[in-house]
Amino acid sequence: MTEVDIGVALIATIGIGIRFSVPIALGALSGIFSERSGVVNIGIEGMMLMAAFVGFMANVTLAQPDNAAVLQHSSVRFALAIGAALLAGGCMGLLHGVLSIQYKIDQIISGTVINILALGLTGYFYDPEATLPQDVQPLLQKFKNPFPESSSATRELFPNFTLSFPNDIGQIIFEKDLITYLTLGLIVFVGWALYNTTWGLRTRAIGENPRAADTLGINVYRLQYTNLFIGGMIAGLAGAFLTLAAVSQFERGMTTGRGFIALAVMIFGNWRPSGAVMGALLFGMALALQNTLQGFGVNVPHQFVGMLPYVLTIVVLAGFVGRVQPPAHAGRAYEQE
């Protein structure tokens, strides 16, 4: 076991860590969209699960050999499957909106409804026999590394620690699928837009003080609905990543708490996109590192690593270390006068 090269393991760990963090970062971003506009969202998990299922089913249905060849083409299939997943996530976001904005039910209840509903609906309609035909490739392939191994210099920096220069960098930066890049782009864009555009200012305003925003002529409800729909779609992208990129398979309840980790990360990141991506990377890397350490015979029970995001969230929420500041009006329905 000790023969594993540390350098190689390190590069692999970073790669796996990024893959773990993508759905978490997307989920946290989805949470930011709704909580920043004043609607608490504990239903990220359900939105992800629903979208993962719908995307998977769309992919499988389209890939059946008796369909028209156009539909079976991988880029058409990709567009349609991801579109279906986004729409499913968006619809769950809208349901959250209808329940908590139109009917003004407690936003926590509404989120709970979404979680249970998604678990039930996906479990009910899931058919274990629905799988991709044997010869069909998974949709989201990783891009090629432009630096082949042959052209890189492998150097042993320390004993048992080798890096091969351009190839390793290429592995981390280029050997990723489309959604990973999309996630990065989204986070940068939202992080910029939230603080530098009219939309961002209005969104933050209705999350802090909807009455004041309303007085200034902002249509609070419409903006909340819009943001919930977009947030749902982003959670949907996370779901699509799970069934179209990471593995091409659906299982009952396959999100296994990723939505709640996302919620934790969002709080840990103080409701900011930059904080969310840092948190997601931190936990993704911690999970990957625990995997890698096993290979070196250092066995940390994975449960303790799994606990980390939740414990840290409680710590920052209670103000033991630092202090996070939730949007002032999140959690309460806004009553127009």
Partner: peptide, 30 residues
């Protein structure tokens, strides 16, 4: 206690404690 003395919202802390309990129990019987 977190709600009363640190003003941490009980919904979030209980969601987090659910996940922690699952991991804790899973470790105890691993």
């Amino acid at each position: 206690v977190l709600k009363a003395y640190a003003d941490a919202h009980e919904v979030i802390t209980t969601i987090m404690l659910n996940a922690i309990a699952i991991q804790l129990a899973s470790w105890m019987i691993s």
